[in-house]
Design a protein around this nucleic acid. Sequence first.
DNA 1: TCATTATATTTATATATTACGATATACAAA
DNA 2: TTTGTATATCGTAATATATAAATATAATGA
Lengths: 94, 94
Amino acid sequence: MDNDFNKYNEAAEMLKILAHPVRLCIVKGLLENGGCNVSHMQECLGAPQSTISQHLQKLRSAGIVTGSRNGLEIKYTVIDERVKVLLPILFNKR
Amino acid sequence: MDNDFNKYNEAAEMLKILAHPVRLCIVKGLLENGGCNVSHMQECLGAPQSTISQHLQKLRSAGIVTGSRNGLEIKYTVIDERVKVLLPILFNKR
DNA sequence: TCATTATATTTATATATTACGATATACAAA
DNA sequence: TTTGTATATCGTAATATATAAATATAATGA
């Protein structure tokens, strides 16, 4: 049953990153709009800049999103394929 | 807006429950075998009884699994439909 | 250069989660 | 009853996570 404990650890790591309302909101917004900068997220979520930035840092270091700078702004996009599949299912209306 | 916020909170709550290697292993095992008792999980996972039982308590109070007693044993099964869909995707090999 | 804007990092503190031994409960059989 | 077995709950120390203010960096334009 537990041949591959790593498998469970990795999956749990990813879920742990997703398992926060602000991060879910960020990721869902990025998926639906194709990308977004930090200032816009701040407005939407009503959280201070440093808080948003720290959540983005987690998403980034987990390989879920990536940011590309364009002048002053940094535009974030979702790059993890599993997340692209999981999120719509998670928010599926039934 | 409040509505949306609830949506993210609820989804995050569910993910947080799943986001633990032992609980993932339990749920995946239950899904694949159709059910299992605590003693068997203990053997498989090599964790003390109270630890397993506390993870089951979390899964139970989140409505992800339910247990039905049969004599001394309690057989657990997964009852959350989203989880039944999400887990196979999470562990899908590509 | 300096000022401004967008984002990241550091630091401190508060809160939540985890693990596990000890103990309690539920049931069955003697 | 009493004993043995399966599972649940309690107490709590160790660890992890969240938040936000303060500060730092990076890019741009005057």
